[in-house]
Amino acid sequence: MSVIDVRNLGKTYRTIEKEGGVKGAIKALFRPQYREKVAVHDLNFQIDAGEIVGYIGVNGAGKSTTIKMLTGILYPTTGAVTVLGHDPQRERVANARNIGVVFGQRSQLWWDLALIESLNLVANIYEVEPSRYKQLLSHFSEVLELDEILKTPIRSMSLGQKMRAELAAAFIHEPKIVYLDEPTIGLDVMVKQRIREFIKDYNQTHNTTVMLTTHDLGDIEQLCSRVIIIDAGSKVYDGPLHAIKQQFGKYRTITFETNQPITNVQLPPACEQLSLSEYSLELKFDRSQLSASQVATALMQQIDVADFTLNEPDLESIIKHLYQNPTAYNEVAVNE
């Protein structure tokens, strides 16, 4: 059963074009010139309970706009969003009870208050039952290692401490859906790992739905079973993580090292030379037409191979390739 239902969602910003000076300001007041910018265009997807979905794309692709519409901050221009049966804008309060939000670079907590006071306030706002609150607090303290910072005001926390605090505040009312906007940005490896484990653990024990935007593919690889890629406001990929590799990463590379200088090599079909130096040869081949052993066999008959390495395309390079070559999206059918 889907908990988030997005249909034909679109958002167009209309900004008034201003000329400088008093004259321009007056002109803008009486005869405004509008400029339209499409931020999100005809977006469709459903997310089921318990899924962890990575929502990725380059800066300005429309990620934040989508999240803002899902959380009820922004009104859509076209289409509709339904979150657990609620319209997030019209039933803002009802929707807010079901969701938790972390905006990576903006604090949800009170600058001057000690973390425990902030959490108390949040618990009050969401009407968390006191005994349940106590239970959750001790659980979070353990998993997120909050004990040392419970009495610290947010203003004097390090980035990693702040993010752990934010997560505790976002989960303390046991939301059914959590939106995480860049939850690991700027953090060191250890903290990143702890946060990922926390999210994963919480998702498994509570069947909480998580939607996460990130630029860190480590987050995606470790957490997300499903990825939605958005580019220029439109969805360009929606499917399981491993399918990205299969669909976009159809080329593998193989590198041969030799003891004698390489001369005159005859390449098998569907195979392409990437680089050649005296003792090393790098080839690229289409995995759907050739296997690695076929390539290796063909080459070993011609040159004296001392060693060879086979490279699977990693997610990072695939995504980078996709971001840089928008036409590459057309190479696969979008998984609907």
Partner: peptide, 13 residues
Amino acid sequence: RPGQFDRFLVRPI
């Protein structure tokens, strides 16, 4: 301006 207003809108009050 600093985007802090959004947090009021995602809370149930």
